[in-house]
Simulated assay, not measured.
Amino acid sequence: MKRHPVVIGIHGLANKPPVDEKTRWWKAAIAEGLARNEEMPDAGFAFEFVYWADLRYEAPLTEAENREPYRPYDGAGPLPGGDEAPETTAKDVLAPVYAGIDTIEKMTGVTLVDDLILEHRFDDLWHYHVDQAFARRVRARLAERLRAFRDHRILLVAHSMGSVVAYDVLRMLEREDPSLRVEHLVTAGSPLGLAKVRLKIESEHGRPRVPDTVGQWTNLADGDDVVAIMGALKAVFEPNGRGSHVVDRRVVNGYRRPDGEPNHHKSYGYLRTPEFSRIARGFANPSLAIPRARERA
Rank of each mutant, 00 (worst) to 15 (best):
I8R: 10
I8D: 08
G9K: 04
I10R: 07
K16F: 05
P18N: 11
V19M: 12
K22T: 08
R24I: 02
W26C: 13
W26I: 05
L55A: 04
A64W: 01
N66H: 12
R67A: 15
P69N: 08
Y70S: 03
P72F: 07
G77C: 07
P86M: 05
P86N: 09
A90E: 15
K91S: 09
D92S: 15
A95W: 12
G100V: 05
G100Q: 12
T103F: 00
T103Y: 12
G109L: 03
V110M: 04
T111S: 14
D115F: 10
L116T: 11
Y128M: 07
V130A: 01
D131I: 05
A133Q: 05
R139Q: 14
A143W: 00
R147M: 12
F149M: 09
R153A: 11
I154E: 06
L155Y: 08
V157W: 02
G162E: 13
S179C: 02
L180Q: 09
T187R: 13
T187Y: 07
A188R: 01
L194Y: 13
V197Q: 04
V197L: 05
H205N: 02
D212K: 12
T213R: 09
Q216F: 11
L220M: 11
A221W: 14
D225Y: 04
V227M: 06
A228N: 03
A228V: 06
I229D: 02
I229G: 06
G231R: 11
K234H: 15
F237Q: 01
G241L: 12
H245T: 15
V246C: 03
R249P: 00
R250F: 00
G254Y: 06
R256F: 00
R257M: 08
D259G: 07
G260N: 10
H265D: 07
K266E: 15
Y270L: 03
S277V: 04
R278V: 01
I279D: 09
F283H: 08
A289W: 02
A289M: 05
I290A: 08
R292V: 09
